[in-house]
Design a protein around this nucleic acid. Structure first.
Length: 835
RNA sequence: GCGGGCGUGGCGGAAUGGCAGACGCUACGGUCUUAAACAUCGUUGAGGGAAACCUCGUGCGGGUUCGAAUCCCGCCGCCCGCACCA
């Protein structure tokens, strides 16, 4: 106490009053915002709606600065929109189901529900600390039955429409733990990460969503979205559309083997066929003398992990086995052998291919490895013809069809539709489009997720739980520590059910839903979070959605964003909304790394939390620092070196406003001086506004700092006692409000305005007022700057040229030379070319 | 292998055809202070020069242009995505 009251002899007492102290002002305004509920979102508030969404976090514990990076920056944008007159929704929730909570709970011997409650409380406090504009009354917690019952409701709607189905799928199985494993849980050598037992692929019944029904639409509608090109490309590749044809090859066994090809025009060059080791016809096609070889090969393929099998190491040779059977090429009735090889995937196309070694790289390698015939059916124009014996690689370029009967001479690519038309006519094939995208496997043999709302009755089979019985509540008293089996299997009370159809005894489904289910529609729930009769009221969704701006990490470029798009289309088809794309505009922030450039890690202790930094520098300074690190999309290693610069800036801005608020600002300083300051005000408004709109937060702050530095130079000049100065102070405060909400509120209050700066209107720049009276223009001779001239803004070319030629320094470089050309860019540059 | 992105001072970065290095950090020097902190003023790409200034300089090599960090061609390096997709 004594230290602050005893000020230094010649330090005026008022200086203490102008001291910036975030430890005092931040809690003060945080409390004021809360008690005035200024961030409460009202559906009926005036102004067009703006839905600003940020990917909700996992309740993993405490926040680190990366969370602030992801959340405080969109908060700045949401605040801008609000000041610009929009009715802004900026909600918050927690993605509370899933493996991390379950694993952490097991590790810490605490129930995942308890773990979540504790974490959410801690995180909520830290989000408030950053001064984010969150309306907590709309908070969503996906592990709450009031939320996940609607997952179940959507599931039932999908089941009714055939969009949800059960099917067998090959999944990794650990015979010791008696459980399926994720691909990531299978270690090298195909052993279980938990018990070390050897694992294998097993066909198990799983639940799927028919996302492939929407493949074409998911692809087409990407084009119109204002999303990063990178994300759109990743989704396009993931969906993986291929145009081609489906062909039937007759087999000598009497079966028909279907293949898909993008090059039906090379069918005359098919000299053998290959089917995947998992193909259903393997057994029937294998002859007795080949059986032992085939069985060995298939068994080996089965135990290989996907990673090994799909690796494309150049060195990795093609492997395979001959079935002993032959197929008939439908175009020329040739008898060609059928092989089995793991380079053909059961999960793509039909799981079988016609091999055209002359024109497919993989088929070529296989043919060379097993000494199978190669036939050229496309010959390049104007280049040496291809000969099977001497080819070193397959040929994919342009050319004309050869060895292809009536098609000889037809050029690629017109060859493709012509061959398809003929195949169709002959009933041997037809045009087809296939996708790489597979249906979404949504069932998990895990505890901490939404129970799948169906029961199994001995009499009626699988029966959906009626809507009136929802939610199917996840029992909190289940034994969830790992026993190798789905925990709900051992929960008698949960397991026992009554069949809704016949009233007989039934067994409940014990699988839970993939957590991505929760995040596939959560933003609709924010529009109507308390609704207990529907997931949301369509009228409220119509008011708020689609989301205008969605911010989040690039790591969700495919899965979450694809599922969310799929779900939106399903919800549209249920008649609840009338659009199919959830997020109009998407922006990805970069990742904040640890100082060493590695990922921030809790276990390695490289995580940096916001609390200490806020205590030392204030939340406003941390917000600015994160924005100023570089382009938001870029991310980068964390460092706290620059934060002092942000603190200095805030202190100066605060000092300027605070000091001038005690002065009478009725003086005058001459028209030119006042106009110059006003021009500076308007140029700053323009820069800050444009930079914010373009997500250039780092340069936005640079503009604010430059403006403040300029004002610092003027603060003891006469202009600092004029009404324009007051304008400068108010503009600075308003422009800072989105980025530094706390100190801006304090500045606004010191300027004598009523609470709150965050309810004010964003300043608008006037292009005419932003114009400066004179500009300095560089004068070049042969592209090198030799002098600078000062001319009135907007001077015509002739004036610039005269001034340039009149410069003594320029003259020196002109003497003895002749002028070849003169280039004038008004207000920018003069270049005199001499020889 | 295919696709995308990036390469600028001691550091983070700015400038997307027109004065390279805005803005910030760091470092050094000055002012204020009994001192420190805070603040404040100045210098801070390299080389040369007493100075005015001059020369060089945006990964490397070429090109287009009056003019290139920016556009084009060829390399080198780093990062990200996909990866036997028929």
């Amino acid at each position: 106490m004594t230290a602050t009251t005893t000020s230094a002899p010649n330090a005026p007492a008022f200086e203490d009053a102008h001291r910036y102290d975030p430890a005092v002002i931040e809690p003060k305004w945080r409390a004021a915002w809360e008690s005035a509920a200024i961030y409460r979102v009202d559906d009926d508030a005036p102004g067009p709606k703006w839905y600003s969404l940020t990917m909700y976090p996992y309740p993993s514990g405490v926040l680190h600065v990366g969370h602030w990076y992801a959340f405080a920056v969109p908060d700045v944008f949401a605040r801008l929109q609000r000041m610009r007159g929009y009715n802004v929704m900026f909600p918050m929730g927690f993605d509370a189901f899933g493996l991390p909570a379950e694993n952490a709970a097991i590790r810490n011997n605490i129930h995942p529900a308890t773990w979540n409650v504790e974490n959410i409380a801690a995180m909520r406090r830290q989000y408030d600390l950053m001064g984010a504009m969150i309306d907590w009354s709309r908070e969503v917690n996906t592990s709450d039955p009031s939320y996940y019952q609607w997952n179940q409701w959507f599931f039932l709607r999908m089941l009714e429409r055939g969009l949800a189905y059960r099917a067998n799928g090959a999944v990794w199985w650990c015979p010791n733990d008696q459980t399926v494993l994720a691909n990531e849980q299978v270690l090298e050598g195909n052993v279980c990460e938990r018990c070390g037992a050897e694992v294998y692929k097993r066909d198990l019944e799983q639940w799927y969503f028919r996302i492939t029904d929407y493949a074409q639409e998911l692809l087409d509608e990407l084009d119109a979205l204002d999303w990063p090109e990178r994300v759109k490309t990743m989704q396009r590749n993931w969906i993986g559309r291929s145009e081609g044809a489906r062909l039937q090859f007759a087999l000598e066994t009497g079966d028909s083997l279907e293949v898909f090809t993008t090059r039906p025009d090379t069918v005359f060059g098919a000299t053998f066929m290959v089917i995947a080791p998992e193909h259903p016809l393997v057994d029937r096609l294998t002859t007795d003398e080949q059986r032992s070889r085939v069985e060995t090969y298939v068994a080996r393929a089965r135990t290989q992990s996907d990673i090994e099998r799909q690796s494309t190491d150049e060195a990795k040779p093609k492997t395979g086995a001959f079935t002993g059977s032959f197929a008939i090429n439908p175009v020329n009735d040739e008898r060609i052998p059928v092989w089995i090889a793991d380079y053909v995937l059961m999960t793509y196309g039909t799981g079988a291919i016609m091999a055209v070694p002359a024109h497919d790289e993989r088929d070529f390698q296989f043919a060379r490895a097993f000494d199978l015939p190669i036939r050229v059916v496309i010959q390049p124009d104007d280049v040496d013809p291809l000969y099977p014996a001497t080819m070193e690689e397959s040929y994919h370029g342009p050319g004309r069809m050869v060895n292809s009967g009536q098609f000889n001479g037809i050029a690629v690519p017109e060859s493709i539709p012509q061959v398809i038309a003929w195949l169709d006519e002959q009933g041997r094939g037809k045009a087809e489009v296939i996708f790489r995208l597979r249906d979404w496997l949504i069932s998990r043999q895990r505890y901490w997720g939404t129970p799948i709302p169906v029961v199994y009755c001995d009499a009626c089979g699988m029966v959906p739980v009626p809507d009136s019985d929802l939610p199917v509540v996840l029992p909190l008293d289940a034994e969830f520590t790992p026993t190798g089996q789905s925990p709900l299997v051992h929960h008698a009370e949960f397991l026992t059910a009554t069949c809704p159809t016949c009233g007989g005894a039934a067994r409940r489904e014990t699988d839970t839903m993939d957590t991505f289910m929760d995040s596939s529609w959560y933003w609709f729930r924010y529009t109507d979070p308390q609704n207990d009769t529907a997931p949301f009221d369509p009228a409220r969704a119509a008011m708020w959605t689609p989301v205008d701006l969605y911010c989040g990490g690039i790591e969700h470029a495919i899965l979450h964003l694809l599922y969310a798009r799929f779900f939106t289309k399903v919800i549209r088809d249920l008649g609840m909304i009338d659009f199919g794309e959830p997020f109009t505009r998407l922006r990805n922030q970069g990742i904040i790394l640890a100082a060493e450039g590695t990922k921030m890690s809790k276990s390695r202790g490289t995580q940096v939390g916001p609390d200490e930094i806020v205590a030392e520098h204030g939340a406003d300074a941390l917000r600015l620092h994160l924005m100023f690190l570089g382009p938001w999309e870029q991310g980068g290693p964390w460092n706290d070196r620059g934060i002092t610069g942000m603190e200095r800036f805030i202190r100066r801005a605060f000092l300027l406003v605070s000091e001038s608020s005690t002065r009478e600002l009725t003086g005058s300083a001459g028209n030119d001086t006042e106009a110059a300051l006003r021009a500076s005000i308007h140029r700053t408004i323009k820069r800050v506004t444009n930079d914010l709109e373009g997500f250039h937060f780092n340069t936005m702050i640079a503009a604010l700092i430059e403006f403040t530095n300029e004002l610092m130079k003027l603060k003891d000049e006469p202009v600092a006692n004029t009404p324009v100065w007051r304008e400068a102070m108010e503009t600075l405060t308003l422009l800072m409000a989105p980025s530094t909400p706390y100190v801006a509120e304090e500045m606004w209050s010191r300027l004598g305005h009523p609470f709150s700066v965050h309810l004010q209107t964003w300043p608008v720049f006037d292009e005419a007022l932003a114009v400066v009276a004179t500009v300095e223009v560089p004068v070049q001779v042969n592209g090198k700057v030799r002098d600078k001239i000062v001319v009135p803004t907007g001077s015509p070319e002739a004036v610039l040229l005269d001034a340039a030629r009149a410069s003594g320094k320029v003259q020196e470089y002109l003497t003895g030379k002749s002028i070849v050309r003169e280039i004038v860019v008004p207000d920018r540059l003069v270049n005199i070319v001499v020889k």
